[in-house]
Write a protein that binds this DNA or RNA. Structure first.
Lengths: 346, 346
DNA sequence: CTGTTAGCGCATTCAA
DNA sequence: TTGAATGCGCTAACAG
């Protein structure tokens, strides 16, 4: 049971308490805990374990961290103006992948949601609680670069997610999914089905990955089809529908709408219905990053499966590697993607 | 710039380094950093700040934590068999609410996703990195109680989310939303519109809150309507649709389906369509916890707005209060909910 | 206003 | 095989 001091404040037991109870030195206890059994006799070890159990002792992270100069945690920093930043399923999948991998090696995940640059500055002044971290940033490239530069000053292993790291900071690693290929595959299917005029509906809030999808779609289409670009207020679903609907009414010759993500694909489905267009007969629709929503529509959305969860795991492995071997160079990982079939393109 | 040792390993600067550069004692630097300006002269403070800037010094959390016996972080522990535990929008909203509140006071959020009791035991052996934590557990009440009892041994401020804490552990706090009232309001509306036979479609994975909703719905209906109960495999959307569809075909006199959450409400929408039932004409449908999805269907789902984000904030406030004043008793907070209108009940 | 001392819990190093 | 000494970075308490 926890020790209580005179004032009634319960204090956690330390190595010293265990050592006293087991009648050994603190080092012996430390050795037992860290499984250095070669250095401890069997019966002594048993006595120590009994004392640990009796006191309900658990090593205190702060002492260990101070001594070893390791925090035994990784960070996930998200810079995004929406305060409900974890609404984004991509972010949550990355976080889940990191958390689950880290749990297997006794590490923790520290999540930081920042709404603007000021919050970042505040964060920078404080100490952190991790040995390395991943960053996901929305906004213009210029601003993203500024964020990366700021965070690089922490001098900690760092992975940029779904973006190109700054060329002038070669130490930074990156992990992305192959959104160029994914968008290309979707466009190819639309072209095969005769699409000549396509709308790419992106979110108003800029994510680098979505820009890459739009660019890759345009490149894949070449001069075989025309691709227009529409920026939608993704956070307001109703508004997105309205914007796509307006565009569809203004462009009755459109053959397809590519949603920058599945939410926008679903918005396009409803916009089509409001315009009296049948899917996929009158209008084909695709989404991107098939998470929960992909099946919510009828017909099901044709989309691209995102390995966001696996990306979270890979990020962790890379960071742990960089922490263990400081000499290791930066990693740049590109995860493959594949199309998820759906009735929305026929 | 970061100091480099002979081996090329970069080492973080410490108070001592700053003190040396500024020609003051470490305590003076500490006082400047902690804004104890009454104890430091203006020009000395300026000199110290200059040194901090020059060395890019940042206080190291581990030293501070060790000295003050505080981790400056809160934990969020989720025990749920699905490894993508953060797929649940309720959990992510709670996490976002916690993270954003904590950012304002310089605390961090540590996320722990556990898939089973073994993972919990592993976690219990290690040291943690937080001063208090919130718990969200799915599964049977018996198993949940076991989890709470295990975690209580950490002897840390603890908040149970969306569940009753164990009666024999009066120290544990709790925060819930008033799901009884929410379910009651939905039932009342259905009854007003003449519903006599209602299906409550719950997820196969048991969440205490969903059980409360089902119980409250039955209680509210009394003998005015019959409420059946169906357990759906929520993780597989297609399977959920199939299960609800089967039930609807077997019970053609059903008037309404209450989804235990919005995902299940959406599944019911599709099941209705497959049965050739129009919504709300032939069948009324409700959801629960209106997050992103609530607007994804047509007609829009009638649901109950969840204050999950606010719950996250309240959890943090409660925990911080308990950490600051150990004498404070447990808190038990019940957050009100309200209905979100939608065309799915007419 | 500034400096000195001491010790938080732990693991590396060295001594027995 | 076990123990003792040392110091990681920081701040409360006290001394000047």
């Amino acid at each position: 049971m926890a020790k209580k001091s005179a004032r009634g404040r319960s204090t956690k037991p330390s190595l010293k308490d265990v050592a006293k109870l087991a009648n050994v030195s603190v080092m012996t206890v430390s050795n037992v805990i860290n499984l250095r059994m070669a250095r401890v006799g069997d019966e002594v070890a048993a006595r120590v374990r009994e004392a640990i159990r009796e006191l309900d002792y658990r090593p205190q992270r702060s002492g260990r961290s101070l001594r070893l100069q390791r925090e035994f945690a990784l960070g996930l920093t998200v810079l995004h103006p929406d305060h409900r930043f974890l609404d984004d399923p991509y972010i949550t999948q990355v976080a889940a992948g990191m958390s689950n991998y880290l749990a297997t090696i006794g590490y923790s995940l520290v999540v930081n949601g920042l709404r603007n640059m000021e919050a970042l500055d505040t964060l920078m002044e404080r100490s952190f609680g991790y040995d390395g971290f991943a960053v996901m940033v929305s906004g213009e490239r210029e601003q993203r670069l500024q964020v990366y530069h700021t965070l690089a000053r922490l001098n900690l292993p760092m992975v940029v997610v779904q973006d190109d790291p700054p060329p002038d900071l070669p130490e930074i690693s990156s992990v992305r999914q192959d959104d160029g290929a994914g968008a290309g595959m979707l466009v190819e299917r639309l072209l095969q089905k005769g699409a000549k005029r396509i709308l790419f509906a992106a979110s108003r809030q800029i994510w680098p990955a979505m820009e890459r999808r739009a660019a890759a779609a345009a490149a894949a289409a070449g001069n075989r089809a025309r691709i227009d670009y529409l920026s939608c207020s993704e956070d307001d679903f109703e508004a997105s529908i309205g914007q796509i609907e307006s565009w569809l009414r203004a462009h009755p010759n459109a053959d397809a709408v590519m949603g920058g993500n599945d939410q926008l694909g679903l918005a396009a489905m409803q916009a089509a219905e409001r315009c009296g267009l049948s899917v996929p007969g009158d209008l084909m629709i695709t989404g991107y990053n098939a998470f929960l929503f992909q099946k919510f529509s009828k017909p099901t959305l044709c989309s691209v499966a995102s390995p966001a969860y696996e990306i979270g795991q890979e990020i962790s492995k890379i960071l742990i590697g960089l922490i263990k071997d400081e000499r290791a160079g930066p990693h740049h990982l590109m995860m493959p993607v594949n199309v998820v079939e759906g009735g929305s393109i026929g």
